[in-house]
Design a protein around this nucleic acid. Structure first.
Lengths: 345, 345
DNA sequence: TTGTAAGCGTTATCAA
DNA sequence: TTGATAACGCTTACAA
């Protein structure tokens, strides 16, 4: 059943039927009712290719990932993707997952944008200065960034308040009496990692403190890297009494390191992590329950989809900027430091 | 630059230019050369929407995932996805990633297939009897299955020889002298898990043995589940001397369990796993290096893309069936059993 | 409030 | 071997 048949059946023109279905104002209520009712009865679905040809829109939003980096293996990326896919599934559009060789990334964006096969991009894990964003602000294809980056032109983005979250987390530990606090962060060069470090430093600075050397670690966020970093920190002669982690995955590794070294979490050492709400890793079911700054990355993915569609519909980028506040959730993995406990490796 | 402009520039009809570009036979070599040369010079790209409207093809292949199950968090799934995305990126098509509520899965396939927005599906992790496949064999939309399932009609599929692989792995352990062997497998009900169990059992049966109760464990393949299963097995009074695992992730958990219990891998207990070549988890860099049956799942994803495109181009499903052999890689995590070593919890 | 008609950029049919 | 011409199914000026 196509538009022509449907309109013939109704004794109306294709124009009127099309407008009735697309919610134009200049259609009588009565006609609209008849049309929508018939459309439902015949299960009429506009042909997407025809619509795309007529409107000039591809009906596709895309997310690119570098083949060589194992981004797909990063659960944070995947949760974002899942939320995005959920949102797009509520529309008539497609979410296109596209592989690109890392060396050719910018050129892939360029070519793909010009191909007319895509209406918009979602960018994740932006660097402090991100060549993808720099290239895309010069192109007509809309895009949205999960996170922030340093670029002159306005660009649509959704971020969480990383700096504020880590400042509050660090302040909490300071309030409990901790003075020796370490930060196990994500990869250096990524904006979120810089912002979290800023929050960490500013909280310390507010008490006249500064992080000691070696107390800030940068690495991709995995259990294994969390274990390595925490183990090294815990084995140091000047073991920190508290650790802030950029992911529950890292905290999980830190838990393992603490166990291996016979340290009681929430007693010998306090641990607090940012929680992106990875579904297979619940902070409150760890032993002991893990204190967190909490912000579901899946929801962010969903919202990114909505914002990108708004951008595609013409909302200017400067109006599409959201910074989400982050909850601080106190749990028993943090406690006041126990004085002068020192342990040699 | 569109077809009309290009053909006017060449002084040819659109028809001829189109045919020259699409490799039709009835175009003179000379004309074809001129046309392709001009197309390259002007960077002509056919409008995908127009092409889709004219051909009736969507230019999209899709892979659906259930929102509630954390499939996206399973690295096996996204390695497959990465390979698939790599293949599709070499074409003019899109790979659409689509979320579906698990309760509504079949209906989503149906609706989506009828929507005209997709030319074909990739199905992964089929069940022994899989309702998705049963629904899709009745529809005109082509699809391909990664794995096998029990269904009357022919269907396109690519699988590895799970049964053979696990029979060989088990036989290797038997040859080394092991008699008490456990299997830590994937989720029950999935075809690959059944096939691996079959291989395991048949190898034992060939020596007149049968697995003892509790020696076959089914669970989603994760480090955590591997740890739990292995720990329970290793703590049992009748500890198995060898363990076969369906994933390196499981083996990783088993390594941790062995370490926690003071068991030396490759001495007190032998461990062998199927290796899908997850990029962040190399069997040969574990300590000790892990013996495996080896088959890169990413390559399978790539090949699935090729096969699906062949299916879409008209190759009948019965001609699209591949079962890949699996390599057995001996490493020092397996050794002959050390007799009468028993350890109580 | 409704209808006419002209695109949108291809591919496919058929005739030359 | 090439070219008119008609689909493909929709949206959207513009006219009524």
């Amino acid at each position: 059943m196509n538009l022509k048949e449907l309109s013939e059946h109704l004794g109306l023109s294709q124009t009127t039927v099309s407008r009735a279905l697309n919610g134009y104002a200049d259609v009588s209520e009565d006609t609209r009712r008849r049309v929508t009712e018939a459309a439902r009865r015949f299960d009429y679905r506009p042909n997407p290719a025809a619509r795309r040809l007529a409107t000039g829109r591809a009906g596709v939003v895309a997310i690119l990932f570098p083949v060589e980096q194992n981004l797909l293996v990063d659960p944070h990326f995947f949760e974002l993707l899942a939320g995005l896919a959920e949102m797009i599934a509520t529309t008539e559009m497609e979410l296109s997952l596209r592989a690109t060789p890392v060396a050719d990334e910018i050129e892939t964006y360029r070519r793909y944008a010009r191909s007319g096969r895509v209406d918009g991009f979602v960018l994740s894990s932006p660097k402090i200065v991100d060549p993808r964003v720099e290239a895309l602000v010069g192109l007509p294809t809309p895009f949205i960034v999960h996170g922030r980056t340093e670029v002159a032109a306005p660009y649509a983005h959704l971020d969480i308040d990383n700096e504020g979250a880590f400042a509050r987390a660090t302040t909490l530990l300071l309030d409990l009496g901790h003075r020796e606090i370490a930060l196990v962060n994500g990869r250096a060069g990524l904006t979120f990692a810089r912002d979290r470090e800023r929050g960490f430093r500013s909280a310390l600075a507010a008490r006249g403190l500064a992080p000691e050397s070696g107390r800030i670690v940068n690495a991709p966020m995995s259990e294994e890297n969390g274990y390595r970093a925490a183990r090294a920190l815990f084995e140091d002669a000047r073991r920190p009494t508290a650790l802030v982690a950029s992911s529950v995955l890292i905290a999980l590794g830190a838990y393992r390191a603490a166990r291996d070294l016979g340290l009681a979490i929430g007693r010998d050492v306090s641990i607090l992590a940012h929680d992106d709400a990875l579904p297979f890793l619940k902070a409150d079911t760890l032993d002991p329950p893990l204190a967190t700054t909490h912000s579901p990355i899946r929801k962010a993915g969903y919202r990114l989809g909505e914002m990108l569609l708004a951008r595609i519909s013409g909302t200017p980028p400067e109006r599409l900027s959201e910074i989400w506040p982050v909850d601080l959730v106190f749990r028993s993995s943090v406690a006041p430091p126990t004085r002068t406990r020192r342990r040699t490796g």
